[in-house]
Lab assay of single mutants.
Amino acid sequence: GKELVLALYDYQEKSPREVTMKKGDILTLLNSTNKDWWKVEVKATANDKTYERQGFVPAAYVKKL
């Protein structure tokens, strides 16, 4: 199945390749080969529509579930 990670801290994206997350968010882990930056998929809701974004977050800010 898919691997999930838990956001340990809030993170505000600093570039278009990154994604914003809030502490407590559960994210889908896409790639953890880089030890510093993990690629995740974030589900977000805006205007009653759910959309998914993929991007990088600092590996130290998340932990595998």
Rank of each mutant, 00 (worst) to 15 (best):
E3L: 12
V62R: 01
K14L: 08
S32A: 13
P58Q: 01
K43Y: 13
M21W: 01
T20H: 04
G1P: 11
K49F: 11
K63N: 06
T33S: 13
Y9G: 06
K22G: 05
D36T: 13
A59T: 05
L8A: 03
I26W: 04
R53M: 07
V62I: 07
G1H: 14
L30Y: 03
E3M: 12
K64P: 09
T33A: 13
S32D: 15
A7K: 01
Y9M: 10
T33F: 10
D36W: 15
G24I: 02
D10H: 05
K64H: 08
P58Y: 04
T20C: 06
G24Q: 02
E41D: 05
N31E: 14
T33P: 04
M21Q: 01
Y51V: 14
K35T: 10
S32V: 06
T20Q: 04
G1E: 12
T28M: 10
N34Q: 07
V42M: 12
Y9W: 09
L30N: 02
D25K: 01
K35A: 13
G1V: 14
T45K: 11
V62W: 01
L6V: 14
K39Q: 11
Y9K: 13
A7S: 05
I26T: 06
K14T: 13
V42N: 07
K39M: 15
N34V: 04
N47A: 11
Q54G: 05
D36I: 13
T50R: 08
W38H: 02
K23I: 04
Y9F: 14
V57Y: 01
F56L: 09
E18F: 06
G1A: 13
S15T: 12
K39D: 03
A46Q: 13
Y11M: 00
D25R: 01
T50C: 15
A59V: 05
K23Y: 04
K35S: 11
Y9D: 07
V57T: 02
L65W: 07
Y51G: 11
E3Q: 13
G1W: 11
W37D: 00
L27M: 14
G55K: 01
L8Y: 03
Y61I: 08
Y11R: 01
W38C: 05
K14V: 07
T33W: 09
Y61E: 03
F56G: 00
Y51E: 10
E52R: 15
M21F: 09
E18Q: 11
K63I: 14
D10A: 06
D10F: 04
A7G: 03
Y11W: 09
R53S: 06
P16R: 09
R53H: 06
Q54F: 06
W37M: 04
K63S: 10
V42T: 15
P16F: 07
V19D: 01
A7I: 02
K63L: 11
A60M: 09
W38R: 01
I26Q: 04
F56V: 06
G1D: 12
L8D: 00
K23Q: 11
K49V: 14
A46S: 12
D10I: 01
G1F: 13
I26G: 00
L30G: 00
T45Y: 13
K2G: 09
T50E: 15
N34T: 05
L65R: 03
Y51F: 12
N31T: 08
L27C: 08
T45Q: 13
R17A: 10
G55P: 00
D10T: 05
L27E: 00
L8S: 03
K23F: 05
V40Y: 00
R53I: 08
M21D: 00
W37G: 01
P16I: 09
G24H: 04
K14C: 13
T50L: 11
V40Q: 00
R17I: 12
N31K: 06
L4M: 11
T45C: 14
L29M: 04
W37R: 03
V57D: 03
E3P: 12
K43N: 12
S15V: 04
L4A: 06
V42W: 06
V57N: 01
K63T: 13
N47Y: 10
P16S: 11
K14P: 03
G55E: 00
A44K: 12
K49H: 12
M21H: 01
V62T: 03
G24P: 00
V40P: 01
L30H: 04
A7L: 01
L8H: 03
D48M: 07
E41M: 13
G55C: 05
K23M: 07
V5A: 09
R17L: 14
A60C: 15
A44D: 10
Y61F: 12
W37Q: 02
S15P: 02
T28Q: 09
T28V: 15
K49Y: 12
P16V: 09
K22R: 11
D25S: 06
E41F: 05
Y9V: 10
T28E: 09
L29C: 05
D25P: 00
M21G: 00
D10P: 05
L6R: 07
L65A: 04
L65F: 08
D48L: 09
Y61N: 07
Y61L: 15
P16K: 09
R17W: 14
D36V: 14
V40I: 07
V42K: 15
V62Q: 05
K64N: 07
A60H: 13
P58C: 07
K14N: 09
L30V: 10
E3R: 11
V40L: 03
V5E: 00
N34A: 07
L8V: 06
V40E: 02
A60I: 08
K23S: 07
K43I: 15
E18S: 05
F56Q: 03
A7W: 01
E3F: 12
R17T: 11
K39G: 04
K23N: 04
Y51K: 12
K14E: 07
T33H: 10
P58M: 04
K43F: 12
W38P: 01
V5F: 05
S32W: 08
N47T: 08
T50W: 09
S32R: 06
T20A: 06
L6S: 04
K49W: 09
N31D: 15
P16Q: 09
T45I: 13
W37Y: 06
N47I: 10
V62N: 00
D48N: 13
A7N: 01
A44T: 14
K39T: 07
V19T: 05
D36E: 12
K39R: 10
L4T: 06
L30Q: 03
W38S: 02
G24F: 04
D25V: 03
K35W: 06
G24Y: 05
W38E: 01
W38K: 00
V5R: 01
V57F: 00
L27A: 07
D36H: 14
K39L: 15
K49I: 15
D25H: 04
K63H: 10
N31V: 08
T20P: 07
I26K: 04
W37V: 01
P16W: 08
K39H: 09
Y9P: 01
S15C: 12
G24T: 01
K14Y: 04
E52T: 15
L27R: 00
V19E: 00
W38V: 05
L6Q: 09
L4P: 04
V40N: 00
L6F: 07
T45W: 12
G24L: 02
D10N: 08
